[in-house]
Design a protein around this nucleic acid. Structure first.
Lengths: 349, 349
DNA sequence: TTGAAAGCGATACCAT
DNA sequence: ATGGTATCGCTTTCAA
């Protein structure tokens, strides 16, 4: 004892339960209980051990823990190959941030798998889907019948799909209320007495594209408007596509446009300005997302705010429950959205 | 044998070296050698074992492998707490993507640690810096004397700093040639016969802020210009700060501005337009980064392109060499940048 | 070339 | 409440 203690303090590089135990005068079992917050530890022992853990900055070896417990304490976010834009889109950056944060708060390690090309996809799918490597997966939903999506859904690892997957209605997913968001947007325009309300929708093979257009149509019909196909154009969520889509709509003289993303809304504003028209005087614009650019544009964009960070947190909370409670019943979660009124629609009080 | 073989094939969920060995009639040691491509295995044994591995889709348990080999096969990207903007900045999204891709290509798993608040920082730093958890780290450089930076630099895990760390001149880092980029930008403006060339610099406590301003001054002096403090304003790389800085410069009638980031350049363009002036007719603008928004602005932004994806790839290549060859000598890598001429400076041929 | 066996550092069951 | 010990699945000497 006399000789070994100082030595142990010296080589902090390889701290183990055993060494902490020696320093605290208890067995490795007891230290393990302290680390894992097991109830059966007396208060003074717990205190003593915790003090030493703090002093030495001990933290358990994850490999050993994984091997013994048959859990990896890793949660992965998977971006399928068919997600084209990916990191060009600030949405994914925020999503990643939210999920990483929530993962760490639950004491899991966060791993990111971007399957950006076939080579990486082939290499990673077996690793990702093999039981034991990863405790839980968040998989970004996609349009196509993506390889990784079906592998995960049919595999045995707990997962949550981020975004409603059109092809798999009966799986665990989390999404924002796209339909209601679109309705909020359009009803705002209706309240401002706009009569020719157009939309720039997203691609119709992914749920945000589909649902936001559905909401647009629903709101119009609910308020007795006639849906005019000439006032509907399709983009792919990028600014450039919004610009093009707006050019397509302008000949039909809309007095308002609901864009299914902020980026497309900003593109539309540019097209409108180039035509010599003014936002919001001549045409009102509502976007969707409320990402930072919406606040810095001129005019500032009225938009539908989706809680991206909360989305990540909620996804991880669901996932952790699945992992730790071994639930398997599919569960759907829809997060609310809200209208954020700025300057691109006029009529602000 | 008769009874156990079918059983083993049945429960593929828990394949181990031992079971593969039993199926192939060899020991676990031999199977391990086959899996790890060790030379000392006879051809027919290797063949037999590989066949079974393929049939059973066996893949080794990473936790066990890590524990035994004292390597985790994980490479982490650390975003220190003092990196304020983080994911609002498209730069980090691209950086993350490049590093994730390169990491996977080298058969490591990619983990992301965003130390966005003190709680997460306290929780993660011991884990990150503890030997054995992570084989190598890429750490984003920061301004302040950040806790995690000094811990990593003084620790024993191989690392590469992304961006020149001002406080630690003698560590392994990778950076882009900020000084030369700024020189390219300013010389372009000089060639276009601009006489009153201002700059919107970044914060002077981080290297991209410092170096790009140094390059600006260097280029002016080299060409016999007098550096006018009134033509220098400081931003923090955001669009909003560029807008404000431009407002500060305009009374001194610059005919060109070198903005140390695209975002600040875009903010400057907005301020200039609001003042009733035109870009590039009245004032030329050069940005820095060449992120997507530079291409979608009006006018399209002339800028300095930095190879962010290559940056990530290069960082991982250096890191992997450090990890696998156990090198420890500090190494500095500077990547070249290039001028991308678009419409914000005029004089385009 | 191959096999046996000793770790790696946790967890968790079983005694006490 | 605490300690002893088998165990997780692999890597890696050391013998044979």
């Amino acid at each position: 004892m006399f000789e070994s203690a100082p030595k142990l303090i010296a080589d902090m590089s390889n701290l183990t339960l055993e060494k902490i135990g020696k320093l605290a005068g208890v067995s490795r079992s007891t230290v393990s209980r302290v680390v894992n917050n097991h109830p059966n530890v007396s208060d003074n022992v717990r205190e003593r051990v915790e003090k030493i853990i703090k002093e030495t900055e001990y933290s358990p070896n994850l490999a050993a823990r994984s091997l013994a417990s048959q859990r990896s304490f890793v949660i992965g976010l998977v971006i399928p190959r068919s997600v084209q834009v990916f990191f060009g889109d600030p949405y994914f950056a925020r999503l990643t941030q939210g999920i990483a944060q929530a993962t760490n708060l639950h004491d899991y390690t966060f791993s990111l798998f971007i399957l950006e090309n076939r080579e990486i996809e082939d290499r990673l799918i077996p690793r990702i889907t093999r039981p034991g490597m990863i405790d839980g997966l968040v998989v970004q939903s996609t349009s196509a019948d993506d390889k990784v999506l079906s592998r995960v859904i049919n595999g045995s690892i707990p997962y949550v799909i981020a975004g409603r997957p059109l092809e798999y209605p009966n799986v665990t997913y989390i999404d924002v209320d796209n339909i209601n968001g679109a309705i909020l947007a359009v009803e705002h325009l209706i309240q401002l007495s706009r009569k020719r309300i157009g939309t720039i929708s997203g691609p119709q093979n992914i749920s945000p594209g589909l649902d936001r257009k559905l909401g647009y149509i629903h709101a119009l019909e609910k308020h007795g408007f006639i849906v005019d196909e000439n006032l509907i154009a399709e983009g792919n969520f990028t600014e450039e596509s919004g610009y093009q889509a707006a050019k397509q709509l302008l000949p039909y003289e809309p007095d308002a446009i609901f864009a299914a993303s902020d980026s497309m809304g900003l593109g539309a504003i540019q097209a409108i300005k180039e035509k010599g028209l003014q936002v919001p005087q001549d045409i009102s614009i509502v976007g969707f997302d409320d990402l930072p650019p919406a606040r810095y544009s001129t005019p500032q964009l009225t938009t539908i705010r989706q809680p991206i960070l909360r989305f990540g947190v909620a996804a991880i909370e669901i996932l952790v429950k699945y992992v730790e409670d071994k639930i398997t019943t599919p569960q759907k979660t829809i997060l609310g959205v809200e209208l954020v009124i700025r300057d691109s629609c006029g009529g602000k009080q």
